[in-house]
Design a protein around this nucleic acid. Structure first.
Lengths: 218, 218
DNA sequence: GGATGTGAATGTCTTCACAGCT
DNA sequence: AGCTGTGAAGACATTCACATCC
C-alpha cells in the first residue's frame, strides 16, 4: 500500500531522511505546546538546517504547507510518519546484551514510535536468564528457532566485532530486514537489507581532528 | 606545531575524516597480521568505500603510497594518527551517568587511542558516589569547580535533553572544546567548539524508512 | 505581508580513467 | 604488470532568489 505514488522514494537521500527524523522530533515539541502551525524557519533553527533546506526536503513529498502561514503541525507530523514508515510497529531484537546493548534497549526514546524490543540474546551464561526491561535474556543458540517461529524486522548488533558477520548472515537468512550495527565490522548483506553503522570511535576521532585543527590555528 | 603545512585542514570534509577513522581500524588488523603493505583496494573493500575514494582521501594529505605496491601499513597508521590528532591524550568527562552514559564509558574501544575518561557527573543522589570503571560519580554541582581546577577536552552528554543546552553553556565557558551529544537537543556553541550528534532515534527511523520502501517494491 | 515551492546557480563529493612511478 | 596519484567529468546536495499563493 503506497501512500505517495507521485514520488520516487529511491531518489530520496539519506541526509533528507535524517533531517525528516529531526523535524519529527521538533514537531513533537510543537504539538505538546499546542501550536498548530510551524514555519520552515522555525524548523530550520531547531534542527540546525536552513529554511530553504527544510522546504526542499518537505516539497520532495508534496505541498504540505500554506503560503504565508507555514505547515500545519498535526498534518505534517502524520505525513512524515507515513513517509518514514512509522505508522506500524517494528519487532526489534537485541543481539549481544552486554552493558551497551542493555543500556540501549532501556533508553526511553527507543520504545517510542513503535520500536518494540521483543527479545535479547547473549552467549555469556551469567547474562542468559537475566531480566532486561521486562524481557528475559535468552541464549544465543535459540536465536535461529525463535526467529523462524516469530520473525523480527530489525536487529541491534552489539556483539564482539569478530562474530558480527556470521550473526548477520544467520539473521538475514531468517528474515531480518535491517540492522543497527554497533560493531566495528563492515557488514556485507544482500540487496534489500539495510545496515546503519553507529561507531563511537569514529565520532570521537572526528572530535579529536576538530580539536587538533582548532589548536593549530593559534 | 603543524605536521602538514602543505594542506589546508579546514577544507577536509567530514566524510573524509570519518573514513580515515575507519581506515585506521582496518590498519590495526593488518598490523597485528604483520602485513607491511596494504592496497587502496583492500582498504576499500574492508571499509565499504571505493579504491578511488581511498586514494583521494589519502592524497589530500600527501603521497604516502608506493605505486605498484600499496601503502606501508606502519607509516600510514602513524600519518593518519598525526592527521587526526591522535598522538596525544584527551581528557574526557561524562555528564549524565545513567545507564547509557555508564555503558558508553565502559565500552572498551573508548579508552583506546587515548580518550581517557577522567570524571563522571550526575544529579541523581543514588548515582553520586557509585564507582564507574575506577572513577567515582560526582555531583553535578562540582562540575564547574572541577573543570576550573583541571580542564578537560571532550564532554560526553547523556543528560535529559531539556538541560543539555544549559550544561553545554557551562562547560564551554570552562574550556571544553568538543561535545559528543547523545541528547535530542541541537546545541548552540561558539565557533571553535565542535559538537557531534549521536541520535539513536534518527538511525532507527532511517531503517524504518528503508524497510517501508523495500516492502513497497513488492 | 509573510511564508511556501521551486527552477537555476552554486558548491561539494564521488567516480572515472589514465598518466606516471616502482 | 601493478597500483598510486590526480585532473576532469559526473553525480549529488545545498543555497539563492523570486514567482506564487494565502
Amino acid at each position: 500500500m503506497k501512500y505517495f505514488t507521485n514520488c520516487d522514494m529511491t531518489k530520496i537521500s539519506d541526509s533528507t531522511i535524517k533531517r525528516l527524523s529531526l523535524y519529527l522530533r521538533i514537531l513533537e515539541e510543537f504539538r505538546t505546546d499546542e501550536r498548530d502551525t510551524v514555519s520552515s524557519d522555525e524548523l530550520a533553527v531547531k534542527s540546525g538546517a536552513t529554511s530553504a533546506q527544510v522546504r526542499k526536503d518537505l516539497s520532495l513529498f508534496g505541498s504540505f504547507g500554506k503560503r504565508g502561514l507555514g505547515y500545519p503541525v498535526q498534518e505534517l507530523t502524520t505525513r512524515i510518519e507515513q513517509i518514514m514508515g512509522l505508522q506500524r510497529d517494528y519487532r526489534v531484537i537485541l543481539i549481544g546484551a552486554g552493558k551497551l546493548g542493555s543500556a540501549l534497549v532501556q533508553y526511553p526514546g527507543f520504545s517510542q514510535h513503535g520500536f518494540r524490543v521483543v527479545a535479547a540474546y547473549d552467549t555469556a551464561p551469567d547474562r542468559v536468564g537475566c531480566d532486561l526491561n521486562g524481557i528475559t535474556i535468552r541464549s544465543d543458540s535459540l536465536l535461529d528457532e525463535d526467529l523462524a517461529r516469530e520473525p523480527a524486522d530489525i536487529a541491534i548488533l552489539t556483539t564482539p566485532s569478530e562474530v558480527a558477520q556470521a550473526i548477520a548472515d544467520r539473521i538475514v537468512a531468517l528474515g531480518i530486514s535491517a540492522i543497527l550495527n554497533f560493531t566495528n565490522t563492515k557488514l556485507t548483506v544482500p540487496d534489500g537489507v539495510s545496515v546503519k553503522d553507529v561507531n563511537m570511535a569514529v565520532e570521537l576521532e572526528a572530535l579529536s581532528f576538530a580539536i587538533r585543527n582548532r589548536k593549530d590555528e593559534s
